[in-house]
Design a protein around this nucleic acid. Structure first.
Lengths: 236, 236
DNA sequence: TGATTAAAGATTGTATACAATATGGAATAG
DNA sequence: CTATTCCATATTGTATACAATCTTTAATCA
């Protein structure tokens, strides 16, 4: 669906196999707002879609639940998570603390090749916006942050960032108030400049203000209504 | 096993039920070094111990694997995780960033009742040390940090801290080099003083240096050998 | 004796059947 | 017409049987 080849990788703890495939496909759909908060993921339905037994589907759903992308209610089933206002606030507070540090670490050890990959990624973001594919654009802009965490070569922070970014996607689906979705590009470019100079402090500051800016784009008073009937939007 | 009633709670995402019980019991055993890194957790064996079917056991083991306390190897089974030297380093770097912030947040809003509970908890640590139960003492000193995160009333940070503390327990099992296990008490007391004065900055600084101190107690060159045959050490 | 191979056993991976619970609709009473 | 109860249906929870894979043991050959 993206206009260019992707350099980022979807990740999960799951071992290779059908459960992992299902996890990744559902995650993709969630991050690109193909599946919106509140949507039910019936085991039979998901199994039907992917040609897998309930055993396999349950493994994937439980993993998504541990990643907080899905909420499992006893005897009722799995639903795309609907982060509360407080959780939204907290996720962005955590990002404001952690991601600047990670960006600084990346700035220290980033290579020209890394920078080139990031540039291409930003270009892909532009392309997606130009193509009117806002879901893909959102997904890509999230992955930009994950890629930085990977460059920093710190797996513990990287996993935490991945988790926070994923949850941010749900939060944006529920609470985003701005009309412009293109707000990201400027900060991402500025960050690249700091990276090119290996300027740790600048990278930290830019990342911090970027996340504060994202945070301020949320309307944390009212929650959007999300209905959407089913999970028929799972095309590759 | 503790000399006093516990104010802390073991937590998991799992819904109430046998899987949750097994998760919590295994977690307890891991955090108190009853189960050491590398030990195999056979599904049949665990199921036998708890009178549960493999289905239930697998749910618990998968949850522990997502918490990174257990490693699942395809077709080989589940083992208590053995954090690498790099992972150990990273976990403590993450703690050095996050926990001081959390301690500062707690200092802002802590109540006299909270402080009293923390005092009692420290006393329980002392009792465990006096009783020579170093496993329990270690477990309690970890929970002290989790309790602070809970006092800060920030669920996102709290979950991250819980995860880091749990993994620290495995790291300590593999890399701890000091002879004295009582090193903790002083810092914990100092932290309480800062809390009593609602001194945010002092709380941050004490927590930071406390974790740096813990970090320096690790020997991150060689990994201890851990054998231990089986999981027969699961008494309440 | 040592190494290699082969077969037997044990353990995990997956599908499915059945049980428990929740959901939605129909029938009845007010 | 509204509200309530009860039943039929659908969905999740759990146990178990079977398949796939790995491990161990024993036998064979150099």
């Amino acid at each position: 669906m993206g206009a260019r080849a992707s350099h980022y990788k979807y990740l999960t703890d799951l071992p290779p196999g059908k459960s992992r495939d299902i996890y990744i496909e559902l995650q993709k759909a969630i991050l690109s707002h193909g599946l919106l908060p509140g949507v039910k993921l019936s085991e039979d339905e998901v199994g039907e879609l992917f040609g897998a037994s309930r055993t396999i589907v349950r493994t994937a759903l439980q993993a998504l639940s541990h990643a907080q992308l899905v909420t499992i209610e006893k005897n009722r089933g799995a639903f795309i998570a609907q982060p509360s206002i407080k959780e939204a606030q907290e996720v962005f507070e955590a990002r404001e603390l952690i991601e600047p540090r990670v960006a600084g670490m990346a700035a220290k050890i980033i290579t020209p090749k890394d920078i080139q990959i990031l540039e291409e990624h930003i270009q892909a973001e532009h392309d997606a916006i130009a193509a009117g594919d806002s879901g893909e654009a959102l997904s890509l802009s999230g992955f930009f942050h994950v890629m930085i965490a990977d460059i920093a070569e710190h797996e513990v922070f990287s996993k935490i960032v991945r988790s926070l970014i994923s949850r941010s996607s749900l939060i944006i689906a529920l609470y985003w108030k701005r009309l412009d979705t293109t707000c990201e590009s400027h900060s991402h470019h500025a960050l690249l400049d700091a990276f090119a100079k290996n300027d740790v402090q600048a990278a930290e500051e830019i990342m911090k203000s970027h996340i504060v800016d994202l945070h301020s784009g949320l309307d944390l008073k009212s929650r959007k209504q999300t209905k959407q009937s089913l999970a028929s939007i799972l095309k590759k």
